[in-house]
Design a binder for these strands. Structure first.
Lengths: 220, 220
DNA sequence: GAATGTGAACGTTTTCACAGCA
DNA sequence: TGCTGTGAAAACGTTCACATTC
């Protein structure tokens, strides 16, 4: 193949399948573990096995973005970890805001894994006047009315919604108005953003429905 | 409305795509909302629009399981809600066990949505001796050593893991040994069950990675 | 020799377009 | 006429198999 040098630059990274990105995130975690264990090199065979996918799929996933391995040898663990971190956007520190400091919101605020991946909570929004103005884990709790300012001040692009169902759409609207570009929604309701932003859903009941369907029709 | 004959009985419900089940779960939620609003009838057009999918996709999804609508009219809201509930296995009350009563575990224990979908927490497992033997929301907290008995007594098929990363594999093994057939895993690690059971993953860092990849390569 | 990278084959899911029915 | 149900086509994602490279 010619054009080896400019190849990566010519690629279009914008409509990679979401499943690929999900798997990339798993490779990233496993590579991180291998790296801390001092393992220097890994084959597509070994790495893919850890993630329960086929070796050819791992190689195809990486092929969307370029060539990162050495034939006959495998992948440099630390290098590939870095490359995937870049692809996932984890080299930047992302400021996020979180709305709803119930049990779930508190769980996420306390979850150290977010910081490890470069997500920093720039503000927490609550409707309960008793909580507003206080601090939790060193983070300030605001009224939703202040979201525009906080988003602007900290250049926030991502919002996390952990409010009750009935408040979710209202909060979504406030986030979109404030300039949020992507939302992670934990409320069990389908959001209809006024502008076409990116919404990821974490639906616990949905996941449990899959399990119960599986148990009903497969093997009990 | 009852011309469905033996067609349904002939179908094989066992390897329906997981995406279809996920969407079914969303249709189910929306139908529930419409039902409580007193809406009697809905077209594939209207229902699919609520869930952000194409009308043809909704119809194809339902076609896996049978014919439930009336040509020229649409779907009976209450009837279709019931049908999908059956398909998802929500007519049965599923006993589940939850391991790990940290913030996230506590959030799920307090989450009334589980009961609404027919999931009842039969036992909570903790490693902290100070919590063992106590009650939370009327539910008993056990040592993981008791999981075999609890699973047997309550005929539990589903386990939820909300323990820290380092303990997750050990808990997974204990659940599989106890006879659990399906696991919902919130720990940020890939589980390797000793037997080939069904594992669903809720990976918050993974979902956030998708958002950050999107923001990096699409529109910031 | 060993393991990557990739075109081609394959399988699955989505969408189209319209026949069939109330 | 209006809307479902469904074959056929298109789009998409996965796996195979092997040429390529170290």
């Amino acid at each position: 193949m010619s054009n080896h040098k400019t190849k990566n630059a010519l690629r279009d990274y914008s409509h990679i399948p979401k499943v690929v990105i999900k798997r990339l995130s798993k490779y990233h975690s496993v590579l991180e573990k291998l790296d801390t264990e001092g393992i220097k090199n890994v084959s597509s065979q070994n790495l893919s096995h850890e993630v329960h996918v086929k070796a050819s799929q791992l190689r195809k996933d990486l092929a969307y973005f370029g060539e990162f391995g050495t034939r006959g040898k495998g992948y440099d663990v630390s290098y590939l970890h870095g490359v995937i971190g870049d692809i996932l956007g984890l080299k930047k520190e992302w400021a996020v805001v979180l709305a709803g400091l119930g049990h779930l919101g508190y769980a996420l605020v306390s979850y150290r894994g977010l910081e490890k991946k470069g997500f920093k909570i720039a503000g927490i929004f609550e409707s309960d006047p008793k909580k507003i103005g206080r601090n939790v884990h060193g983070m300030r709790i605001y009224s939703i009315d202040d979201i525009g300012r906080v988003v602007k001040d900290s250049d926030v692009k991502i919002g996390i919604i952990t409010v009750p169902v009935d408040a979710a759409q209202k909060v979504c609207d406030a986030m979109v108005d404030a300039g949020i570009k992507a939302i992670l929604n934990f409320a069990p309701v389908i959001l209809h953003p006024r502008k076409p932003i990116f919404v990821e859903i974490v639906d616990i009941s949905g996941e449990l429905s899959i399990l119960s369907h599986y148990l009903t029709f497969h093997a009990i």
